[in-house]
Design a protein around this nucleic acid. Structure first.
Lengths: 163, 163
DNA sequence: GGTGAAAGCGAGGACCA
DNA sequence: TGGTCCTCGCTTTCACC
């Protein structure tokens, strides 16, 4: 898996990526038909894209509600200082907390933005107090709750125009 | 596809969901082996979970960098007022902008939190000015940039304990 | 709910243009 | 690169515990 940017991607690769991003379980034959190619070269392209790391993985998207995760929260965190040690420790800890769906180090007023799930508001409160607030070096926390998922799926735009 | 919450999920279902969340391309045979079941019942369970909407879809995760999306931004938006009309229009518009990876209606100071990708900072500036700022009813915008993806994948926790 | 088996299909490779 | 063919193993669906 290469991590270099700027891999050569032609129009077929991009169409393939678009399709596979929308439905990861497409068979090679189906995929081939959709991008108007025959199965073998289509399969080879996909393998190449996997090798190059353009395709990072295949995942089932699960319904949070039905799994009992009724609350999605966005938590902004400000650190007391920006020592590499403190931040690295924070990141390492956060990475291992399953309720933390995503975490970004961000620019601006706050240092980190976390997306978190919880069973309900009460659980979230407990989680915030026990698990987040108690981490070392945290100066300020600001939580917002998702009232409505307007758009999700985390699909990247794949435009043939930019090839 | 049902949308009701609280579907019956036993330990096997949860293990299955965990596996399929991590690797959507597992074959039924592989999946069955991992959860110590034979192929047929395993396949039936998966189908049931798809039917019930617990599994919402299968998606390839693509590498943003390699597709030329060098910038990930989090944009907080405050609306001038909260008229249903204005908000619905905003949501509908936003849903159709490919650069908008996700959008949540949130509680707190701001009304919406959007995750956006752009080729570079300059493109983002242009996008923010032309596409976002010009939407009707927007009072305030606050953008932060992702400096580092500490954790991603959007995997939900699936604990057998909560079954 | 679980097992076993049968039929049809796709993955993945060899090979040619 | 792309296309064709081939083979093995898997998916999928039975009928039956």
């Amino acid at each position: 898996m290469k991590n270099h940017a700027s891999i050569e991607l032609d129009r077929l690769d991009l169409r393939l990526l678009q399709e596979i991003q929308q439905d990861a379980r497409l068979t090679t034959a189906e995929l081939a038909e959709r991008i108007s190619l025959s199965a073998s070269p289509c399969w080879r392209r996909l393998k190449r894209l996997e090798e190059e790391g353009v395709v990072e993985g295949y995942h089932a998207r699960l319904n949070a509600e039905q799994l009992g995760w009724g609350v999605t929260a966005f938590v902004h965190i400000m650190m007391e200082n920006h020592s590499a040690e403190l931040c690295t420790q924070f990141e390492e800890t956060v990475r291992h907390i399953p309720e933390v769906i995503s975490c970004h180090n961000i620019s601006g007023q706050y240092d980190f933005l976390l997306q978190i799930v919880a069973r309900d508001l009460q659980s979230f409160g407990e989680f915030a107090r026990k698990t987040i607030r108690s981490l070392p070096g945290i100066k300020e926390i600001n939580s917002s709750f998702s009232l409505k998922e307007v758009k999700t799926g985390n699909a990247l735009p794949v435009e043939p125009s930019t090839a």
